[in-house]
């Protein structure tokens, strides 16, 4: 069944395939810059492929959950004891937090801010496909434009910020995570109020770091464990979303100046469900 044709046919097929390769290179270049998109093709493929991918992913998750459940029953008992203790501590903290909240409301009232994010809405979505190559950290979720998702909407989990929506079709969205090396977020160290830019560095460096914070001001005194949140200065993410904690502080300078390595708040290897913030919160900020 090997393809057979005369020398002429062989040459023509080679030329056609070469031309297609050149065309693909050009298409890719244009799609990267955002000039060229084929939304109808992406929508059509998503319509067919996403349910099957969703089924396979759910089946895998069910099997993995089952195995993990069996392995962790003993751990759960320890966890219950620990959580009971933590619950007592949190209840004590909560009473002081309520006092702080009331104070905050009073101060906001003084500033004339009645509602911080009046249009905040969340869309819950499940992960149906994940990019496998080590170069990108991108995944596809089962909610799209018809659910109100738009490009650049922030994506969260209960642990913190995951990333933003990179592409939207009618029924699916592609999410670019914080740790992808194409990703950048304006960050703020909660304790010192130092501003910087958090860059994804997944598998870029040898020391398995995932997130770096660059462009920190000279003389900033950070400690390991300091929390980093979004500053809202990038116009994409609203202020106050938890990015991660400082893992190590570099004594050297990279090309972008002094930097720190962050431990992301989110476990990117095990994301199953996400929340997408819709309604243009960043603009509101």
């Amino acid at each position: 069944m090997r393809w057979k044709a005369g020398a002429g046919g062989h040459k023509i097929a080679l030329i056609v395939c070469g031309a297609v390769l050149c065309l693909l290179t050009a298409l890719f270049g244009l799609s990267v810059t955002g000039i060229f998109k084929i939304p109808f093709l992406e929508s059509a493929v998503s319509f067919v492929v996403t349910p099957v991918q969703g089924f396979v992913t759910n089946a895998y998750n069910a099997v993995r959950s089952g195995l993990e459940e069996r392995a962790t029953i003993a751990q759960l008992n320890e966890e219950i004891a620990r959580l009971t203790e933590e619950n007592r501590r949190l209840q004590a903290e909560m009473s002081s937090m309520e006092e702080l909240e009331r104070e905050n409301e009073r101060l906001l009232g003084l500033l004339g801010v009645t509602e911080v994010n009046p249009e905040t809405e969340y869309v819950a979505a499940s992960v149906v496909a994940k990019e496998a190559g080590g170069w990108f950290s991108v995944f596809t979720v089962n909610k799209g434009a018809r659910d109100g998702v738009e490009k650049d909407d922030p994506v969260l989990s209960d642990e913190g910020l995951i990333g933003r929506v990179m592409e939207v079709t009618d029924s699916t969205s592609v999410v670019l995570t914080l740790i992808d090396s194409r990703s950048a977020v304006a960050g703020l160290v909660e304790r010192t109020r130092d501003n910087g830019i958090c860059h994804g560095s997944l598998y870029v460096y040898e020391n398995d770091e995932m997130l770096r914070m660059n462009y920190l001001p000279e003389g900033s005194e950070l400690n390991t464990g300091d929390r980093v949140i979004t500053s809202g200065l990038d116009g994409v993410y609203p202020k106050g979303l938890f990015i991660g904690t400082v893992r190590s502080i570099s004594r050297e300078s990279s090309g972008d100046g002094r930097y720190v390595v962050l431990s992301p708040a989110v476990d990117f290897a095990h994301i199953e469900e996400v929340l997408i913030m819709t309604g243009g919160q960043a603009a509101e900020e």
Binding site: C17, L21, F28, S31, K37, I38, E42, E131, T140
Partner: peptide, 21 residues
């Protein structure tokens, strides 16, 4: 199909077509 799933038209089609060829 992978390109449409992950939103960068051309990247995977180029790689896999070139590999097969």
């Amino acid at each position: 199909i992978l390109d449409c799933t992950f939103g960068h038209i051309g990247l995977y089609a180029l790689q896999y077509m070139a590999l097969g060829m």
